[in-house]
Amino acid sequence: MRQIRSEVLKLRSTRTSIGLVLGMLGLVLFTVLVQLVVSQVENSSDFQLSAEDTQRSILQAAGFATLFSLLIGVLAITSEFRHGTIRPTFLFTPARELVVGAKGLACGAAGAVLGVVAVAITFGITLVWLQVESVDRAIGTAGILEMAGGIVGATLLWGVIGVGVGAMIRNQVGAIVGTIIWLLIPGPLIQGLYPKVGHFLPNAASDAFSGSSDSDLLSPAPGGLVLAGWAILFVVAGALWTARRDVP
């Protein structure tokens, strides 16, 4: 518990977190508004505001919070290696796996906060927009809540995953570039070529958890369980790896 409080203070006491929050707000707002405007202008059958898929797609803009949550996790640990604060951290808490675990929980909590903010903004704007345009909501209240819960749950889990990835890669630039490359190339490629396996990758599981309209994916609850499995795997692997390896 002490370690978690320490990690929360570390997150709050630099400008990194606030920068990530602002970046997320910008991206989420931009995506929601562009989609809403496009759905008005382009009256194609593919992207009508009244369609459930369209509404889901717009609400899913909140899912961008997962990317920033991942970055919070990766940065929380790699910046300690980069600036050397990992040394005093481990001198104060020689049980290194405890530090990695506490970081995982703190960054999961921080990620969940991002998720709540993103959902509040995205869902708020979208629902008000539908009201103003007198378009019927195509997703029931239970469905809306399920999406909101899934997105917040996913941002929480990505924060944990970020800590695990950062603990294993350590190098800040390497961890960020490596993660982005993974998200852009091999991840989607495997999903495209071997969808049966691809469903179980973190990305696909996260999309499923967040209530994506993509019918190829798992349903939300199993998606969430698979993503939780990944989070536990990454953070445990990161903790064990950190406990074994020398600290530079």
Binding site: Q3, L9, H83, T85, P88, F92, T93
Partner: peptide, 28 residues
Amino acid sequence: VGAVLEASDFHPGRNGRDHLRSLALSSG
């Protein structure tokens, strides 16, 4: 045991008090 290994083991964007407070919190 109190130890200092490198003179530069700080996050440049964190103030001195918060640096110490984060360490203090971790050990009560």
